[in-house]
Design a protein around this nucleic acid. Structure first.
Lengths: 206, 206
DNA sequence: AGGTAGCTTGGACGAGTGTCCAAGGCGAAT
DNA sequence: ATTCGCCTTGGACACTCGTCCAAGCTACCT
């Protein structure tokens, strides 16, 4: 008897139908994330999406309930690992200030170069007008904020949650401003951003 | 002989054709700014715009070259006075830190309440994909940044331009985050934002 | 062998889109 | 009274949009 996953065929054999379907879903989601950043949330159409993904347009509504549902999932799927990596970068640093500096540096490298640079901003704006997206997105960013706050608290910050909120605001704000003016330097604002995570009540002069 | 602006007619008389035209332009621009914030830049259509403005749809392309051109002008016209007022608020404060606090407080009052709350964010994103808008917008925000930097410099900040950049990033970032989560408190991050405009090299302990 | 289930195709459908324009209206100037 | 110039109207135009589906395909199961 042969199991469903038997791959005893040749090296370049045709994948099973289910596997091809999975690949179509993956490509559509990945391409949608890029297009959202490139053209804007409301400018992603089924036809351009299918074309860029190398997929026939009829497949979009076979694999997904609707275009808005696809965009929601694409944005969330692309943001989750990005936020996870941000958490890693932050928690790997010895102090919250170093963590903030590392996050800013990572963001600086990311902006402009990455085809999904503006995905976060687009998703925030879209969430403003989409109840379901707002709930799922708020949960993800809430977890991120909690991680930042935990780091700030461990370092003895007076108001850790405020520090986390402020840090997230600078990061997303800087991302947006730098997209508009690539001349902006993350290095220049680094000392100021470090200051955000350093409790003002416990200054440490040289 | 009668001058063009003779308004010797009754109290509720029909205005001159030119005046009505000016009013149509004004209404379209004002309504467009609201709709951009409400529905998103790419979701503003000629027909919904005309309807919300109380104007026949055929007038849109009589008074404006194209819908994109109208949106550009609407955004810039609405942002200019807002930025001017922000400059006033900032420069009226005795110190840059007080100015930053005042700006944040004003932003906090503005967010959510105002129907144009998200206009700035939408305009930034649109400028990313529209060369002409980017140039005009960069000029306006550049002037604003220069005013903030001048204030920081007068107070002896080590890197005034960086301070201005960081302050603008927090403001726009906080605006966006608060639109998503109205529970965010501007008051909580105020001391941290004040710190941005206070040169870290010259701490002033009580 | 035939049957089944899932993926794929290409196009149809109606509702929307930005843009344009012939025709009409009306106050101001002559 | 007539002309002039600008504003206004309502709809036509040629798209593009999201969604849907009948028909075909092919790997797998019995």
């Amino acid at each position: 008897m042969s199991k469903a996953n038997d791959q005893t065929t040749g090296p370049t054999a045709r994948p099973t139908a289910a596997a091809r379907g999975r690949e179509v879903r993956r490509k559509l989601l990945a391409t949608a994330a890029v297009l959202i950043s490139e053209a804007g949330w409301n400018a992603v159409t089924t036809r351009t999406l299918a074309e860029r993904a190398g997929v026939r347009s009829g497949l979009v509504h076979y694999h997904f309930e609707s275009l808005p549902a696809l965009l929601r999932q694409a944005a969330l799927d692309a943001m989750r690992p990005a936020l996870d990596e941000a958490v890693s970068v932050f928690t790997a640093a010895p102090t919250p200030a170093d963590g903030a500096e590392a996050l800013l540096a990572a963001l600086d490298r990311y902006t402009g170069r990455d085809p999904e640079s503006l995905l976060f901003t687009e998703a925030y704006l879209a969430a403003t007008r989409d109840e379901m997206l707002r709930a799922r997105l708020a949960e993800m960013t809430g977890r991120f904020r909690a991680r930042l706050a935990a780091g700030a608290e461990r370092a003895g910050h007076r108001d850790p949650e405020a520090a986390a909120t402020a840090l997230m605001a600078v990061l997303d704000g800087f991302l947006l401003h730098k997209a508009l003016d690539p001349g902006l330097s993350a290095a220049r604002i680094t000392p100021l951003v470090r200051g955000l995570m350093t409790d003002p009540s416990k200054g440490e002069p040289p």
